[in-house]
Write a protein that binds this DNA or RNA. Structure first.
Lengths: 244, 244
DNA sequence: CGGGAGGTTGATCACCATCAACAACCGTGG
DNA sequence: CCACGGTTGTTGATGGTGATCAACCTCCCG
């Protein structure tokens, strides 16, 4: 499939529960102050709204309040790569250069805070928070590079699912609380196409892997975008991050 | 091939000419001051020295003065992904968390400045430079995600080679100065294995693609790691970044 | 009930990984 | 000088994973 232009907005979309991994919290008052600065505004988007396009002028920094968004890049022949999936608290849009290096689109209905570039640059406390977020994003991108460069389709999907399980699959993961009942439910909030473009696969491969996991009893589905993981530890073994 | 532990140091290694794309310059005096701070020291490494390992404590920020280095991650079964290739002026090692998320290794003989974490955090001007570098790294990682997720082996190698050609293949590229003579020479400073692990390929595939480019007259080789590009524009067409 | 988008499944193919052998290169030591 | 062993790179044969092409299903909403 190839992407060339806009998508139509289909309204609706339930509230998201995205990326549960810890992200830097703005520990100081300065960020709170900035949220109420005169240049700052609050913006609402429907599901699959375009926030900006690659190449647009980059004057604003966005912080997701609720919902979820993705950043993606297109090749001229229509191939798409989703480079980041973002949830509440994540910052994006401040692309170093004068123009955005990616397009940004919501996954579900989303509200975001839109900061003025000038305001951020003026506050050193704001800068500090921005730095922390940027460094954290770099780490996330490193993990994703491993996924894209070295993992099998199966491992990619498993890693993707584990990403939304709180406190599990992380280096500090202590295993299940209850050895026998190690279930978890994750809501994807993404179409198969979006997942495929994030994982560097095709829609068919993603679908096949998910079906296969279902067949093997690793997961079960409710409504295509709600995945119940039967044994979280089993799924985690499939991510490639553990010595079998 | 699998990686498990140290490599022996083979000395030597010529001076590098790495990543010619523009990177943020520390525009203020503050960074210069920091270079001479008491906590800052200058360190020399031989080719293929390990600077630190994934999981080590992260107390220092490194700036490459001359030479080149790479950051990589390993999966438990030995698969390796090189996530960044760094040249003079690049910063690394400041990984947000208390531990390094990647291993760092030199590609050639390298000298680096080693800053104290405390010193960086104390200076807001230093923070500002760090932020700029981090944001620029995020953009670079986005490009690399596209390469790993969506490009063919041929396109990956072509993109990789173009990366070292100054002022070409960038959005602002104005084409060749001289339509007839559009040659360029790049020194790789990396083994085939390192290239393969950076591009998400195998050593054999990298070798084959390079041989094929040679056969097709796109490039020619001098000594395996010195590539003469016969027509830069032709190579650029092969990166996938242009509409055929 | 009908239409359309999104998702699943099947058959086939191509690209790249894998396995294996060989060649080129380089320093060492006879 | 050449023989050598080790490392790195090249080339060939083969196979598997995931892409592609195509049909069908399912859910939703009118």
């Amino acid at each position: 499939m190839a992407y060339t232009s806009f998508r139509d907005d289909r309204g609706g979309g339930q509230s998201s529960q995205h990326r549960v991994t810890s992200r830097p919290s703005p520990d100081n008052e300065a960020w709170e102050t900035l949220r109420n600065a005169q240049g700052t505004r609050r913006q609402s988007y429907a599901a699959h709204d375009v926030i900006y396009f690659e190449g647009d002028d980059a004057n604003c920094l966005y912080e997701i309040v609720s919902g979820a968004a993705m950043l993606y890049k297109l090749l001229p022949d229509g191939r798409r790569q989703v480079v980041e999936v973002l949830g509440p608290g994540d910052l994006f849009g401040f692309d170093m250069d004068a123009y955005h290096d990616c397009s940004a689109e919501t996954l579900v209905a989303t509200t975001a805070l839109v900061f003025n570039r000038r305001d951020i640059e003026a506050s050193s406390a704001a800068q500090s928070h921005l730095t922390r977020c940027a460094l954290q994003q770099v780490c996330a991108m490193h993990d994703h590079a491993v996924l894209l460069g070295r993992k099998s389709a199966y491992e990619r999907v498993a890693s993707f699912l584990m990403r939304f399980v709180p406190d599990r699959g992380t280096p500090t993961c202590k295993g299940p609380d209850d050895e026998e009942h190690d279930e978890g439910t994750v809501t994807l909030n993404m179409t198969r196409q979006e997942m495929a473009d994030y994982l560097g696969l095709t829609i068919e491969t993603v679908s096949r892997v998910i079906s296969d996991m279902k067949r093997k009893g690793v997961i079960r589905l409710e409504k295509h975008d709600k995945v119940v993981i039967n044994r979280i530890c089993s799924l985690c073994q499939l991510t490639g991050a553990h010595a079998d």
